[in-house]
Lab assay of single mutants.
Amino acid sequence: MLDDRARMEAAKKEKVEQILAEFQLQEEDLKKVMRRMQKEMDRGLRLETHEEASVKMLPTYVRSTPEGSEVGDFLSLDLGGTNFRVMLVKVGEGEEGQWSVKTKHQMYSIPEDAMTGTAEMLFDYISECISDFLDKHQMKHKKLPLGFTFSFPVRHEDIDKGILLNWTKGFKASGAEGNNVVGLLRDAIKRRGDFEMDVVAMVNDTVATMISCYYEDHQCEVGMIVGTGCNACYMEEMQNVELVEGDEGRMCVNTEWGAFGDSGELDEFLLEYDRLVDESSANPGQQLYEKLIGGKYMGELVRLVLLRLVDENLLFHGEASEQLRTRGAFETRFVSQVESDTGDRKQIYNILSTLGLRPSTTDCDIVRRACESVSTRAAHMCSAGLAGVINRMRESRSEDVMRITVGVDGSVYKLHPSFKERFHASVRRLTPSCEITFIESEEGSGRGAALVSAVACKKACMLGQ
């Protein structure tokens, strides 16, 4: 009897593995994704193909990295998701002549009506938060230079001027797309009239992360975010950046690689679950690469896999709870928690219980395998993109072996128990001629924006502006 049951459990697990095998990517698959990513990057950089390229390769006008001589107080704003952060950054000489960066910050959550109302409502709310922060720190009387981390696709015309191309991540505030974001912020500050600010720089969160990590390690020339969304930036040779005049030196390019796949480059790798996630998203047909990796989508992918296993009578005796059938019910943090389970399955059992399920031991094991399959594919897909960037940098610099540091931020990278190990191992397999160091950014977005502002202020002083 026991043997029969054991055989049935083994057969069930084997069927589960057959279904989950769809998520496995072979090294040849990853090399294919990497080569296609490089081709799209090239198209994004070139003037004649930029418009139709899915990977936009947006110039950021960040050319210099901090040298350690900029000092002063800077205000930093960070808008990239449902939370908005205001930070005071003091850049100065530390002990023994070292450079020191001290920060104080406060988080504000953005109400739904500000995210989806008008641009005026959104930026009025942001300036209200700045006003509140300055009151708390008794700094209303000071006109501070301000660095703005704005983590949406922007076409820069200068370091302090950028046109919002399109909202992502659930934002829909009308009247912002096609307009200068810094102008919208300046107008809102003017409307309030109770404080003055000098907006000197606007950067993407990947750029802010790279600059913040450069402060720790001067070989950091790539910034990457794996959180709600997924994106990367890197220092490109100016001669390859056709959208900006000049051939000397390097400029940081914001790849906006989340949109890779929007022209069909990933079609052969998309599964039924991916198509369902895409169809029910706020932007169907867009940001397809990001939807395979980002935390906004990972939990939902797992939920759809679990429903398939229920329908195949391989999980929960073929019956799903009402909660499990509800879109968004299986949160991405559950994926991390399930994979963090120590082996007694308590954590998995508790999560499934909150979803109205009474799982068996085998159910718990199957749910864990589903989570591992989805998150491992995410790590491997992400590795193909980064390997594409790094191999490109090595080739354009004609280096036999390139040493490089990548600064990384984002909740999936930082909080998932195995993502970074799987990701690092896969990147290294795909970049055999590179020695890569990964560092995690601390308060990256805010500190990085302030350091970019410090560079901009120093330049302005040198130019006598």
Rank of each mutant, 00 (worst) to 15 (best):
L2H: 12
D3N: 11
R5W: 04
A6L: 10
R7A: 10
E9W: 02
A10L: 12
K12R: 12
K12A: 14
K13L: 09
K15D: 09
V16K: 00
V16T: 02
Q18T: 07
I19D: 03
I19M: 10
L20Q: 00
L25W: 14
Q26A: 06
Q26P: 06
Q26C: 15
E27I: 04
E28P: 03
E28W: 07
L30V: 12
K32T: 07
V33L: 07
M34Q: 12
R35T: 11
K39L: 09
K39D: 14
E40L: 00
D42W: 15
R43S: 11
L45Y: 00
R46V: 04
R46N: 06
E48S: 13
H50F: 03
H50S: 01
H50A: 03
A53W: 00
A53F: 03
V55H: 00
K56P: 07
K56G: 11
M57C: 06
L58H: 07
Y61F: 15
Y61C: 12
V62P: 02
R63M: 10
R63G: 10
S64K: 14
E67K: 13
G68T: 15
G68A: 09
V71E: 12
G72P: 02
D73G: 03
F74E: 01
F74Y: 15
L77G: 11
D78S: 13
G81V: 10
T82R: 13
T82Y: 05
N83I: 09
F84T: 08
M87Q: 06
L88V: 10
L88R: 03
K90C: 10
V91N: 06
V91A: 11
G94P: 05
G94S: 07
G94L: 10
E96M: 11
E96T: 13
G97A: 08
Q98I: 13
S100Y: 02
V101W: 08
K102P: 00
M107H: 09
S109P: 15
I110L: 12
I110E: 01
I110D: 00
E112C: 08
T116M: 12
A119Q: 14
A119D: 08
A119R: 10
L122I: 08
F123W: 09
Y125W: 07
Y125E: 10
I126A: 05
E128V: 10
C129F: 06
C129G: 08
S131G: 13
F133V: 02
F133S: 02
F133T: 04
F133P: 01
F133E: 02
D135G: 11
H137E: 08
Q138F: 03
Q138A: 06
M139A: 09
K140D: 04
K143F: 05
L144H: 01
P145G: 06
P145F: 04
L146P: 08
G147T: 10
F148Y: 01
F148D: 02
T149V: 15
F150P: 07
S151D: 12
P153T: 13
V154K: 15
R155Y: 15
H156F: 06
H156K: 10
I159N: 07
D160N: 14
D160S: 13
K161I: 07
I163W: 11
I163G: 15
L164H: 14
L165R: 11
L165E: 13
W167T: 10
G170V: 15
F171G: 12
F171E: 11
S174L: 11
S174N: 13
A176T: 11
N179Y: 15
N180Y: 12
N180T: 10
L185P: 00
L185N: 04
R186L: 08
D187M: 00
A188V: 04
I189H: 10
R191T: 04
R192I: 12
V200H: 08
V203C: 04
N204D: 10
D205A: 10
T206G: 05
T206A: 09
T206Y: 01
T209M: 07
T209W: 07
T209D: 01
T209H: 01
M210D: 00
M210C: 05
I211L: 08
C213A: 07
C213I: 14
Y214N: 03
Q219S: 10
C220S: 03
V222C: 05
G223H: 00
V226K: 02
C230N: 13
C230T: 07
N231E: 09
C233L: 02
Y234E: 07
Y234N: 02
M235V: 07
Q239R: 09
N240Y: 02
N240K: 06
N240S: 07
V241S: 03
V241K: 01
V241M: 06
V244R: 01
V244Q: 01
V244L: 08
G246Y: 03
G246V: 03
G246L: 08
D247H: 04
D247C: 08
E248R: 06
R250M: 15
C252P: 09
C252D: 05
C252V: 04
V253N: 02
V253I: 10
V253S: 01
N254T: 05
W257A: 00
W257H: 03
G261W: 01
G261T: 00
S263D: 14
S263G: 15
G264I: 00
G264K: 15
G264S: 07
G264V: 01
E265V: 08
E265L: 07
L271R: 03
E272Y: 07
Y273W: 13
Y273Q: 03
R275C: 11
L276I: 05
L276K: 05
V277G: 04
E279V: 09
E279N: 08
S280C: 11
S280R: 14
S280W: 05
G285D: 09
Q286S: 14
Y289S: 02
L292P: 00
Y297S: 09
M298L: 15
M298Y: 01
R303L: 00
R303D: 01
V305H: 00
L306K: 02
R308T: 06
R308K: 06
R308C: 10
V310K: 04
V310A: 15
D311N: 14
N313Q: 15
N313V: 06
N313C: 12
L314H: 07
L315H: 02
F316D: 02
G318K: 07
E319R: 06
A320P: 15
E322Q: 14
E322S: 13
Q323K: 15
Q323W: 04
L324G: 00
R325C: 10
T326Y: 03
R327C: 13
E331A: 07
E331W: 08
E331C: 14
T332W: 12
S336G: 07
S336D: 06
S336F: 12
Q337V: 08
Q337C: 04
Q337N: 07
V338I: 07
D341H: 11
G343V: 05
D344P: 02
D344T: 07
K346H: 13
Q347H: 06
I348M: 04
Y349W: 09
I351M: 09
S353C: 02
T354G: 13
L355W: 03
R358H: 08
R358T: 10
P359R: 04
S360M: 09
T361L: 04
T361G: 11
T361E: 09
T361A: 05
T361Q: 12
T362H: 03
C364V: 14
C364E: 11
C364I: 12
D365Y: 09
D365Q: 07
V367S: 01
R368M: 14
R369L: 11
E372L: 07
S373M: 12
V374M: 04
S375L: 12
S375K: 02
S375F: 07
T376W: 11
R377V: 00
A378M: 09
A378T: 03
A379G: 10
A379W: 01
M381P: 01
M381L: 10
M381D: 00
A384V: 12
L386I: 09
A387F: 00
G388N: 03
I390T: 02
R392Q: 13
M393W: 03
M393N: 02
E395N: 00
S398R: 04
D400W: 11
M402L: 12
I404P: 02
T405R: 08
V408R: 00
D409P: 03
G410Y: 05
H416R: 06
E421Q: 09
F423Y: 00
F423P: 00
S426D: 08
V427M: 09
V427N: 01
R428I: 12
R429S: 14
R429M: 14
L430N: 03
T431N: 15
P432F: 05
P432D: 14
C434E: 00
C434Y: 02
I436K: 02
E440Y: 03
S441C: 10
E443Q: 12
G444W: 12
G446W: 13
G446D: 15
G446K: 09
A449T: 15
A450K: 15
V452N: 03
V452P: 02
S453D: 11
S453C: 13
A454S: 14
V455Y: 07
A456V: 10
A456T: 07
A456N: 07
K458D: 01
K458S: 10
M462F: 09
Q465R: 04
